[in-house]
């Protein structure tokens, strides 16, 4: 418990010091000063992107975890064919830069499929696709770390493959890979900023638009940094809480 507070305190102190340095001559905090009407409006405008950043990231990570698991399973199969499907997917998807994937899905995919695609879903698809390769590797490593005896015990009570996975292997694997999954969520929150290039009204896009009208990039991007920082600190605390809870579950 005390450790959690001290981590938080150090980060908060650093952020405060960073903010206070803004009292010197070159800063113009008026642009987001909530006691003025204009500053308040600007702040609201910036924070208006928060919900989209969160929604985009959560939707994408949910899909990418599901896809990642689907891709991980053939990677664990004894047969060479299934394993090479897994390798192929991972290598291919991992090789495409996220920004390129976003552009390809938004501008390219509609031409290919004939369907128009909203900015939001283009972002979700691109982020989820790109992340799924990493999720697949995480799941594969997590599942491989489970002792062979667990499969034999599951076999000894006649569990089917699906039941073995759902009731025995995955619950243990997920506990082990929780920190890595948490990392991917943090990564996803940051990468969602790239979806701003196709016009998604998330945090980064909002900041960019405000910079164009207010012409105060230093202050506005500083706020943007703080927005991501706070968001990610909350996610980290959540993941650590979950880890502690699952561990307590096993001990007590």
């Amino acid at each position: 418990m005390p450790r959690k507070f001290s981590t938080f305190r150090i980060t908060a102190l650093a952020a405060a010091a960073f903010g206070l340095s803004g009292c010197s001559a070159n800063w113009g905090w008026y642009v987001v000063n909530p006691s003025t009407q204009n500053g308040l409006n600007n702040l609201k405008f910036l924070l208006g992107g928060l919900q989209y950043t969160i929604l985009l990231s959560l939707t994408a990570i949910t899909i990418s975890i599901a896809v990642g698991l689907m891709v991980a399973l053939p990677g664990l199969a004894p047969g060479r064919f299934l394993r090479s499907l897994n390798r192929g997917y991972v290598e291919l998807v991992r090789a495409v830069p996220i920004l390129v994937l976003i552009l390809w899905v938004y501008y390219g995919l509609p031409q290919l499929s004939g369907l128009s695609i909203s900015v939001f879903w283009a972002g979700v698809i691109a982020l989820a696709l790109s992340d799924s390769a990493f999720e697949a590797e995480i799941f594969r490593a997590g599942i491989q770390s489970i002792d062979k005896g667990q499969y034999e015990a599951a076999h000894s009570i006649s569990l089917s493959y699906t039941d073995t996975m759902i009731c025995v292997i995955l619950p243990q694997a997920v506990r082990r890979i929780l920190p890595a999954l948490g990392n991917q969520l943090v990564y996803m929150l940051k990468m969602s900023s790239l979806v701003s290039v196709i016009g998604m009204q998330e945090l980064t896009r909002k900041a960019n638009e405000l910079v164009v009208t207010e012409y105060r990039p230093l202050e506005i991007y500083t706020i943007l940094v703080l927005e991501y920082l706070v968001l990610i600190l909350i996610v980290s605390a959540g993941v650590r809480w979950l880890e502690r809870r699952l561990r307590a579950d096993e001990r007590n």
Partner: peptide, 23 residues
């Protein structure tokens, strides 16, 4: 088995019930 191979994430009761319920 020599190494017991109980399911560590389940209680004793859940270990015992898993086979009867699922299979």
């Amino acid at each position: 088995f020599q190494q017991f191979n109980l399911f560590p994430h389940l209680t004793v009761l859940e270990n015992l019930m898993l086979g009867p319920v699922r299979s």
